[in-house]
Nucleic acid binder design. Structure first.
Lengths: 68, 68
DNA sequence: GTGAAACGTGACTTATAGTCCGTTGAACTA
DNA sequence: TAGTTCAACGGACTATAAGTCACGTTTCAC
């Protein structure tokens, strides 16, 4: 069975954020999104769209493809 | 200036679909999405979610990262 | 044990994703 | 001519993502 895409994307974002020593709040500021929204994405509770994903990728300074 | 992510994703999906000689309707059936929705995604008018993107990637038999 | 920083979550409104009905026009082909 | 297939688009609708808030919990240092 397949891993839920929301979980794998959330885990990857969390991993990249931690590598950069950012808090969820710092990433939220860099991304222009709400802290609690970042949290729910990381925890696989959101079916995020490509525009929000792009904002997070920009905040993390990675290309979107590196989140998959 | 940056290319709108909706446009670049739409263009990539269209390119991959044509390589596979699929009509929009055939891709819709393979993806489990609506024919008109595929059309609007390809034309950059939709901010698609990762779950729908995964469905399209499955229909095209590519990994999601290859759509970015 | 208290204070602060970080994380987690439920509930909520507004915006839009995604569906379903249809039309139109272009490009073919009998 | 008529008939078919396809892309593109519209209106109306339902489902759900975006975005925010209040509050609780965890984990430290002091």
């Amino acid at each position: 069975m397949e891993m839920d895409i929301r979980i794998s994307v959330g885990n990857k974002i969390k991993e990249l954020r931690r590598e950069r020593n950012l808090s969820q709040e710092e990433l939220a500021l860099l991304s222009g999104l709400d802290r609690t929204y970042i949290n729910s994405v990381e925890n696989g509770r959101r079916n995020i769209s490509i525009i929000s994903l792009e904002k997070i990728a920009n905040g993390l300074r990675v290309k979107i493809r590196n989140i998959f």
